[in-house]
């Protein structure tokens, strides 16, 4: 209810600001589609890894970076300070501001993955798992965006402070492509972005072993990591510009 209220207000703000709309809605779509057509696409053995990279990229731009900037901008406008004097919880404020962005990314992902499916002549084996991967990614990106915003003073500074996060997500994706099992794999799932990529690949190409066994671990580990990031962020986050 509170999340919906905040999400409606936030959607209005996004729709009424053309620059934001352009950078949030159009640019990631172009990048995403370019990736389908890139050399990488030709070299990959299957469409799964391509879909994973596309999903991560869209979420990094459209959610991780966007929520970091949104939180810092809304803090500077003292909008967050105002919300803190309402009964809204920390989680619902962050979720309320993130959900319109997540919806935009969801639409973009649908378009880009449809193109990838058409290009590769393949379709995801487990479409429901693809949705689960997206949700997992959205939660992770929001949590790390919240964490990044907790040490970002201004929206301008966000252009720099998101870089470590972006590197980590990229590393997560590439490491997830490396073969590995047991404790090493669990550790890998802890790297933000890895679980998302792993789940996407499984959703698209199918799992070698039973599907459940191969998704449970990355799902649990990455959710725990996102939760931890959120808890730390909530502790560090300043709700007003004046410390």
């Amino acid at each position: 209810m509170t999340v919906l209220t905040l999400a409606v207000a936030e959607s209005r703000l996004i729709l009424r600001n053309r620059t934001v709309l352009l950078t949030a809605a159009v640019l990631p779509l172009i990048f995403g589609l370019l990736l389908s057509r890139s050399n990488l696409a030709g070299q990959a053995p299957s469409a799964g890894p391509i879909a994973a990279m596309q999903m991560v990229m869209l979420l990094v731009f459209g959610l991780f970076m966007a929520i970091t900037m949104t939180l810092t901008a809304r803090r500077q406008q003292l909008y967050l300070k105002r919300l803190r004097t309402s009964p809204a919880s920390t989680a619902s404020i962050v979720a309320g501001l993130a959900s319109p962005l997540a919806l935009i990314v969801l639409a973009q992902t649908a378009v880009v993955l449809a193109v990838t499916a058409w290009d590769s002549g393949s379709a995801p084996v487990h479409p429901a798992l693809l949705v689960l991967a997206f949700v997992n990614g959205a939660v992770t990106m929001t949590a790390f965006g919240f964490l990044t915003a907790s040490f970002t003073k201004t929206p301008e500074a966000a252009q720099i402070t998101v870089l470590p996060g972006m590197l980590v997500f990229m590393a997560g994706v590439f490491l997830s492509f490396a073969p590995g099992e047991g404790p090493a794999a669990a550790l890998r799932s802890a790297i933000p972005g890895a679980a998302l990529a792993e789940l996407t690949v499984t959703a698209w190409d199918g799992a070698a072993d039973g599907a459940f066994a191969s998704i449970a671990e990355p799902l649990l580990v990455s959710t725990a990591v996102a939760l931890l990031a959120s808890v730390i962020a909530a502790k560090l986050f300043r709700w007003q510009p004046r410390a």
Partner: peptide, 11 residues
């Protein structure tokens, strides 16, 4: 009522 108003300007 804070010393400075805090609103989302585009609402």
């Amino acid at each position: 009522i804070g010393q400075e108003t805090g609103f989302a300007d585009d609402l």
